[in-house]
Design a protein around this nucleic acid. Sequence first.
DNA 1: GATACTTGTATCCAAAAGGATACTTAACTT
DNA 2: AAGTTAAGTATCCTTTTGGATACAAGTATC
Lengths: 113, 113
Amino acid sequence: MTNGEKRFQEKINAIQDTMFVIGGKWKIPIILSIYSGNKRFNDISKAIPKITNRVLSKELKHLEENLLIKRTVVDTYPVRIEYALTDYGLGLEEIAKPLENWGRKHKKKISGK
Amino acid sequence: MTNGEKRFQEKINAIQDTMFVIGGKWKIPIILSIYSGNKRFNDISKAIPKITNRVLSKELKHLEENLLIKRTVVDTYPVRIEYALTDYGLGLEEIAKPLENWGRKHKKKISGK
DNA sequence: GATACTTGTATCCAAAAGGATACTTAACTT
DNA sequence: AAGTTAAGTATCCTTTTGGATACAAGTATC
């Protein structure tokens, strides 16, 4: 493998790592939903129409394992859970912004200005 | 729907549009492969070990439909096809870079520095 | 004691994405 | 005529992802 090919592979690996963490249909919506103030399971669920409990639950776990959100148990009446972005999770801004901007541009480009 | 909710939905839609175009296992590798000089079907195929003909073919079509690459028929011996990034496709730099950077950081973070 | 609320889990199923492998077309070479 | 090369296609199959629905555990309220 040449040097160029090696750098090419590393680029791809890095990008695929990112995709693994934030790819799929729901992860970014969930992150943005929490970012915009929804802390509880049912709030997030309502903020993202059509997501099912099973999927939301799995995705929250995935995001927690990747240190992007943290899960806190508030010991009250019918036990309450609060999700919040970690400081590290806030760093996603750095990719969410470009993805958002590019998506807007692309929509205009494709659907004829 | 409040104003905030509307902006939230638009953000999500924009990001999901982007994901639709460049998401999945192979699209970014293919783009980078073309960007780094591979023009022909079999070159791209060899540069990306494990991709199959069927998948490569589908992805190239998808990228072409989204105006990111262009396909040129060079009328020679056993007809040759050349793929190239469009100027518009070069604009992907704007998202590929952040995705790459974040992926590198994240790997360090997760696999313990 | 029945009912409700919250955060999930369990089970089963459907759809989408991706993979293996063989084949095609068409002109050119030998 | 047989073989070669390039760019795919065709067919079938496996894996991954996502969805529907029901239900559970624990406490509080009626």
